[in-house]
């Protein structure tokens, strides 16, 4: 908490300084408003969202019990890694094919940390091919930390996470080659995937691997569902780190998210009702320009 407050204060100080410089901007182009009034609705939404999430996080820290529904794909993660251990074959993990600035990639790396702990514990070989160098650096950090925390720094090897190609289909061809030659027993796809989703999952299926996938890309979900054993859909991917760690701080965020969804559903229902009776213009205006 102290860290958060320090960060907020530092940010405010720096941004005030930036803002002071920005005041030198030519006044004749300004309509008089420092902030964009047309985006006030986005600000309100963001504040409500932040308050709800932080409130639930606080309650979770105080020890309040939070119910979390079962996510089969995540429950099976450890078992799938165990299967690879029994068969003496590697686990293949792909944290999506997007850059590190995508939240989906970060969610994938969070899950990689959990998977790496299990592979470190059971001494199972782990293969993590990545498409971007920044993901490589972050992935190596995550896996090394997991091996250290499991007391197996000796088993860690920098080449567990490896950069294979920057081009989408060159990456896919390389990973497919790994699947066919090294025959991983378990393939885990967690992150942003595009046209290569089925190319990867179908090759894994043909190689007889157990496959668990998770993505927030709606267009790729049907392919993963058809070719994988378990699939995490949309926000389940973001919920994974909280679900696996059961850390109250992370669980609180999930609960807050659910309440935001309830609010959105209520807004949609209200919008439909008002529009049906031709009196929803003022309500629609609240959501314009967001």
């Amino acid at each position: 908490m102290r860290l958060t407050i320090t960060a907020i204060v530092t940010a405010l100080v720096i941004l005030t300084a930036v803002f002071a410089f920005a005041q030198d901007a030519p006044a004749e182009t300004s309509d008089g408003n420092i902030f964009r009034v047309d985006r006030i609705n986005a600000l309100v939404f963001m504040l409500i969202f932040s308050i709800v999430i932080l409130t639930y996080t606080r309650w979770a820290r105080q020890g309040k019990e939070l119910f979390l529904r079962k996510i089969s794909g995540l429950d099976q993660l450890e078992e799938a890694v165990g299967r690879a251990t029994e068969m003496g074959r590697p686990v293949l993990f792909i944290p999506g094919i997007n850059e590190i600035d995508e939240i989906e990639t970060l969610a994938g790396l969070s899950i990689l940390g959990r998977v790496a702990r299990v592979t470190a514990r059971y001494d199972t070989p782990l293969l993590v091919p990545v498409r971007y160098p920044m993901v490589l650096a972050a992935g190596q950090e995550v896996v090394e930390q997991a091996y250290i925390e499991e007391g197996r720094p000796d088993a860690y090897n920098k080449d567990i996470v490896r950069y294979v190609a920057g081009e989408q289909f060159a990456f896919t061809a390389t990973v497919n080659g790994m699947m066919v030659r090294q025959r991983p027993a378990t393939n885990i796809y967690m992150g942003a995937f595009y046209a290569e989703s089925l190319l990867l999952a179908e090759t894994g299926n043909a190689a007889g691997s157990i496959q668990i996938a998770g993505t927030a890309q709606p267009a790729q979900l049907p392919f993963f569902i058809a070719a994988c054993d378990y699939t995490l859909m949309g926000e389940e991917l973001y919920a994974a780190s909280a679900y696996l760690s059961r850390e109250p701080l992370l669980l609180g965020g999930l609960k807050g998210q659910d309440w935001m969804k309830v609010l959105i559903i209520a807004a949609i229902a209200l919008g439909i009702a008002l529009s049906t009776f031709n009196s929803g213009e003022w309500f629609l205006a609240l959501f314009r320009n967001v």
Partner: peptide, 26 residues
């Protein structure tokens, strides 16, 4: 799916910004 995923991404971004979520750093 888009609304759910967007909320999930926003919540994760908030957790990362506030240092609650650090699993991506190991």
């Amino acid at each position: 799916i888009i609304i759910g995923a967007a909320l999930g991404a926003a919540a994760m971004a908030l957790r990362i910004m506030l240092g609650i979520e650090r699993t991506y750093m190991g």
